[in-house]
């Protein structure tokens, strides 16, 4: 176990270093100068502009050599000092991320986990019931194949604009201040529902389709045939098939949960939902190096942690991975 863990840890460390380097490089490939972009918002006299430009370039460290900037970047990561946002000056990057993160997590984790659980059940049931297979599954295909931005327009149009059941956009009502009152929590929930519903519907179909195909395959494979030939009850055979079919699905879940911390840009833009996706989108628009880098670092760490957790979960449900854990050639 120790050997397995240390090997994994080294892998993740290498992935982290590569991730951080790419993260540092990517924003700098965007053409243009962030300080210049920021200052162009104000009407400044040329002399004042030059002075401000010089000061701010120094303050943000954009005037140093690439190597200096890179080293500085590592230093700031290790001290967990992500700096100050250029676009939302003078808010700190960590504060901005801290504000957006709860919205993203509250939106995506329930949507993904619920759709995973329900979709797998639905798919497994569809694998053995013709009626369900012919009714629910095609619906799943439709939701899956539908361009998500379009769905994210249709559903709010019906439920918010036409029927006024739910508010159209935002994280909470504009007329409220964030406090822990019931009115505010209620407002949070009603604003949360529509984006949740669209993400849930789209992934539900995907999980159900995947599970259905996997279960059908598992029910026909040799080990199911053998159990059947030995008179195992159909319920027992299905339980075995479901367990085997869950493994690839679980890897899929791991991948999805890993990128959760990055938010869902399209959903959050469509619903003006104040999560990380929207923050990321705004940061790109503002050429906000530090905010971009901060969010990416967050995503990198999130993906790595999620993968590690799933590695551990896999060990407990798939005995074959336990073998490779002991150091035998996999």
């Amino acid at each position: 176990m120790r050997r397995f863990l240390s090997r994994k840890l080294i892998t993740y460390l290498i992935a982290f270093v590569i991730g951080v380097t790419v993260d540092w490089g990517i924003p700098r490939l965007i053409p243009g100068d962030p300080v210049q972009a920021y200052l162009s918002q104000f009407r400044l006299q040329p002399a004042g502009y030059d002075a401000l430009y010089k000061t701010m370039s120094e303050a943000f460290g954009t005037n140093g050599s690439a190597w200096d900037q890179y080293m500085h970047y590592w230093q700031s990561i290790l001290t967990w000092n992500m700096g100050v946002s250029i676009g939302n000056f003078p808010a700190r990057v960590t504060t901005l991320i801290g504000q957006a993160l709860p919205y993203t997590l509250a939106l995506l984790i329930p949507a993904i986990v619920l759709s995973y659980i329900l979709g797998n059940r639905l798919g497994a049931a569809a694998a053995r019931r013709k009626g369900l297979d012919n009714s629910v599954l095609p619906l799943g295909y439709v939701f899956q194949a539908m361009p998500y931005p379009w769905l994210a327009l249709i559903i709010p149009y019906l439920l918010a604009v036409v029927w006024h059941v739910f508010p159209l956009s935002g994280g909470y009502s504009n007329s409220l201040l964030p406090t822990w009152s019931w009115t505010f929590i209620g407002s949070l929930l009603t604003h949360w529902f529509l984006p949740f519903l669209t993400v849930f519907l789209v992934s539900l179909g995907g999980w159900a389709i995947g599970m259905r195909n996997l279960v059908i395959y598992e029910l026909e494979n040799d080990s199911s045939r053998y159990l059947r030939a030995l008179g195992a009850r159909e319920r027992v055979i299905r339980r075995y098939a479901y367990r085997n079919a869950s493994l690839p699905q679980l890897s899929g879940l791991a991948l999805q949960l890993g990128v959760v911390v990055g938010g869902n840009i399209v959903t959050e833009i469509a619903f003006q939902y104040p999560g990380l996706g929207k923050l990321l989108y705004t940061a790109i628009g503002n050429k906000d190096y530090f905010l971009l880098q901060g969010i990416f670092i967050f995503i990198i760490i999130g993906v790595l942690i999620a993968n590690f957790v799933i590695d551990l979960v896999f060990i407990s449900i798939d005995p074959r991975t336990r073998l490779s854990m002991q150091g035998a050639p996999a």
């Binding site: 080990s223 045939r225 053998y226 159990l227 075995y240 367990r243 085997n244 493994l247 005995p319």
Partner: peptide, 12 residues
């Protein structure tokens, strides 16, 4: 069975 190599369920 003919397929004894793969007849035993893998995850139990």
């Amino acid at each position: 069975p003919q397929y004894a190599m793969s007849a035993l369920p893998p995850t139990r």
